[in-house]
Design a binder for these strands. Structure first.
Lengths: 212, 212
DNA sequence: AATCTAACGCGACCGACGTCGCATTAAGAT
DNA sequence: ATCTTAATGCGACGTCGGTCGCGTTAGATT
């Protein structure tokens, strides 16, 4: 489903408005320090009237959610080298590269921070990551098919495990992100997958089911 | 250095004001939905005048940073069962328990979300986690001393690895947190530690040192 | 105990955010 | 081509967050 013109519902130039607004929102988000994002600024930059923005999106949180939703729809290339180990490593390095480059990091960093400001934004962020992980999980699926990973392993869980430590550093602990950290995260995730931790029955070493 | 009354610098009731303000801030943060935190509300609840809050803390971001800094100073009990595996598992479960209990989760959740709103808040959050991790790393140190983990293993890195997936779910992907996830995160971290991933020279399997 | 002074209380002011009613435009239908 | 109607443009208004100057309080000093 192309996002261009086929507006299903009555009303019509909305598509163009939406495109302009998303572009302006992304630009604003990446420029202004976290807090001082304002609907007025988006209105001025996009040329769309303030009232329209409030009507359609309800406020800054809605604009941020919209930007995330739109971004989530764009597909994004997944490594396919023939080796899970290498693919997962590349996945982690892609995150590392994105958030290390001072040029590239601003938009996603600010977007995530902004999304956490409101329930709506948080929801959109969750959907965004769900979409991304669903795509990236392909590398794990291929790994299972090739017999490089145990057959029961949850592909999405592997992707999450490989990237979680990086986001943890970026947003919670604030420690610098370096290549070894990315490589290490990927290796640890693969280790866990091979140990069966991502399979339906991780290990039956729990003390006792304890029906409560 | 006790934080009670021995105010080193001139001016004096400041200590009481600070305590009231921090309490009011924490209460506000846990009640209001992310965005609509206001200095006025903290002023009313604490009984401290608005202008004073702006003077001492500069705004909402400063208040949040203060709340975090104050919270970080409070020590917090670390498991010590005699087994690293169990200790790390308990650590992860503590995070799980905190963020699952609808009663307990509100404050830390909102505090983290709020901290990500401004550079000041983010900095305070980093310091907060640094303090927490420094304390929690003790379990790994004991594990190394007992020979349960390789001697070079970075204790803090182990703690981070054990908790990162949980925060990742909580804030980025929004997936529900369950006990298996906590257990799995702990197990994966221990696996990585034993594989030497957290030791200075993770593995020398990098293509070539490349002095650059 | 008397004094000094930093910190807080107070109320008014300014500006920006968000809202509202109405005019205008353009998409879709006949 | 004309008409219908939803969506946008427009400007004004109310409200609230944030600032400022001054008076007051209470810690600290001697």
């Amino acid at each position: 489903m192309p996002t261009a013109t086929p507006t299903p519902r009555p009303g019509g130039r909305s598509a163009r408005v939406l495109a302009d607004v998303v572009a302006a929102t992304l630009a604003e988000v990446s420029e202004k320090p976290y807090d001082q994002l304002t609907v007025d600024a988006v209105a001025n930059r996009s040329g769309i009237h303030k009232a329209t923005l409030y009507r359609r999106w309800g406020g800054m949180d809605g604009l941020i959610a919209q930007a995330l939703t739109t971004s989530a729809e764009q597909p994004w290339p997944i490594p396919d080298t023939g080796s899970v180990d290498e693919d997962v490593r590349l996945l982690a390095h892609e995150v590392y590269a994105t958030f290390t480059d001072p040029e590239l990091r601003t938009t996603p960093t600010a977007l995530i921070a902004a999304a956490l400001r409101s329930p709506r934004g948080a929801e959109a962020l969750h959907a965004f990551f769900a979409a991304r992980h669903r795509q990236a999980a392909e590398v794990a699926v291929r790994g299972v098919e090739r017999g490089e990973l145990p057959s029961g392993a949850d592909p999405v869980e592997l992707v999450r495990a490989a990237t979680a430590p990086l986001y943890h550093r970026l947003f919670l602990t604030g420690e610098p992100l370096d290549e070894p950290a990315a490589t290490r995260a990927a290796a640890a995730a693969l280790l866990a997958a091979r140990a069966g931790l991502f399979s339906p029955e991780p290990q039956d070493n729990s003390p006792s089911p304890q029906p409560r």
